[in-house]
Design a protein around this nucleic acid. Sequence first.
DNA 1: TTGTACGCGTTATCAA
DNA 2: TTGATAACGCGTACAA
Lengths: 349, 349
Amino acid sequence: MRGSTGAKGEAPTINDVAALAGVSKKTVSRVINKSPLLTEPTRKKVEAAIVELGFVPNPQARALALRRNFLIVLLHDNPNAQTVQNFQKGVLQTIGDSDLALVVRPVDRTSDGMLEDVRAFLEKHRPLGVLLLPPISERDDLAEVCRACGVEYVRVGSAPLDDEAHCVASNDREVVREACKALIAAGHRRFGFVRGPAGFRSALEREEGFRDAMNGAGVAIDDVLFAQGNYRFDSGIAAGNQLLLATPRPTAIFASNDEMAAGVMHAAKARGIDVPDDLSIVGFDDSPTASHLWPPLSTVRWPIVEMGRVAARKLVERYLPDIDDDEKELPTRLPSTFIDRGSIAPRPD
Amino acid sequence: MRGSTGAKGEAPTINDVAALAGVSKKTVSRVINKSPLLTEPTRKKVEAAIVELGFVPNPQARALALRRNFLIVLLHDNPNAQTVQNFQKGVLQTIGDSDLALVVRPVDRTSDGMLEDVRAFLEKHRPLGVLLLPPISERDDLAEVCRACGVEYVRVGSAPLDDEAHCVASNDREVVREACKALIAAGHRRFGFVRGPAGFRSALEREEGFRDAMNGAGVAIDDVLFAQGNYRFDSGIAAGNQLLLATPRPTAIFASNDEMAAGVMHAAKARGIDVPDDLSIVGFDDSPTASHLWPPLSTVRWPIVEMGRVAARKLVERYLPDIDDDEKELPTRLPSTFIDRGSIAPRPD
DNA sequence: TTGTACGCGTTATCAA
DNA sequence: TTGATAACGCGTACAA
């Protein structure tokens, strides 16, 4: 399989190809980089030599000469492992057979030096581009750091966070509205809402969607019980305990993510409140947990693999225009899906 | 914060440092690489220049000169996102402030070209080392590819898969035995066991641990009901349905991972069998789902972050002997923990 | 203990 | 359209 002429056992270089094809290094380089000003016979000759030797361009040398590494960095501070994983999957679908590699870089949003750390990392590794996952994708100062370092970026979020070329977004507000409409259609009028952490765009969007649904159905917001959460399981339990103590008790609770919805379900079970007969619950994320719970949790699914694919293509396209030119326009909005499982039942009476 | 002398706005190079310090490039190089044969004043001079310029060695140039990239590759084909994530966390704790970067590379174990893909990837990117997560860590041919490419590797597994320098292992057999002893101590004598996929070392080790416990308690293996699973939720449901149909019904089921345990729990709930009053269940992995289920699932936790830390150190140590020389020996066995939550109850009677 | 000259494999410049 | 030659920034013989 390897180059049949790999005399010294070492990988063949551009010089070997040039010598074999009887041309100069630069011409070989032009073939590699698909320069348009090449004679067809020259190109053929070189390509034949490349195949014969099994030549593969050395990425280290290219990186040095181009002052740019063929790397995509996935920057995230995401507690949801499955989301990160699925996004990676999408990115890798895009860069699969190319020369690119994916570097994963978790960061600590609570750290003071975070911004400087990222800047140092980017200046050191000079990646082609950066992919930003929420919640840190929401920070404009991070995007600014990327620009300052001359590194392209694409941000992923619950709603558009930047111009079309630099973001990929879900439609949290609309899909939450739709999910809540399902609760309303089941007859519910007494609602609880578990908020996501303050300052998170996703938390804001989901709450807006919830409010839209309430308004649309003529449910007074004043009658809705709100509880603050932080996207984690424990905060869901606390919120559930708080909401389920109220009189009259809500018959339906929307939690801004699945972890908290699972917590609400815990709180209900611990109080002998049956889900869904006494209480309907809807979450957000379609985490693995959602389908494993009993009853299976109705929730919302981001098209996260697709988002990874698209985000990576937005990033890579301008550097590797040969990737799949003839493809459709790259969307900025990738709509989420409401998945109605078993945690919604008609209002108890 | 940047070098105050960064005249052209470009990053300072080793030449700038040499010029400022009044020494040669090589001397600067020696300082960077901590060569022992340097005068103290020379070193000080150079270090002062480095700080003044804010010089950071260019990794691309180093990679080219050393014919080696300062990259660690995490190779995995692991369906458990949380495991991968936590392992990454551990790896990053080790390489945190160094020049290293972590490249994540999912592979498809079912693909024919997998081995060649990995080889091509390694030859192209020339990483310092590779970290292998189960189940692909169990494949000796993959380790062989690493050796052939001159790339160091460390394998992670349920039991030692290689010599001490090249692996980090849990003690699945022992900890499963311990977990099952808890079931026996609760009075259970009629067991069901849900197997992991055939050919997986982890599946084998866990079954052996289960058998050890049965033998130790004088429970005849012939009286145990076995069901085959594939580590996925659906197979857990199927296995649960199969086991719970038997007469007499098992009062305790050990599932070889949490996903399948959740499936068993589903099957039980769907049949109106109460967990844990009618049926005790134990899983393995301590996935996020485990604590979110109702009742919370008793399970086993790998010290996966620690494993990532140790595995990375085993890999990096010989290349960066200055990392933390004065640390303790690096262990090969990192014992797992049995976590008894709410899914075990005394045998019903 | 330090410096000189060259190599690593690719791309860029600019002339032919 | 092609080629000779010089970067790119660092490491290593080998000499001093």
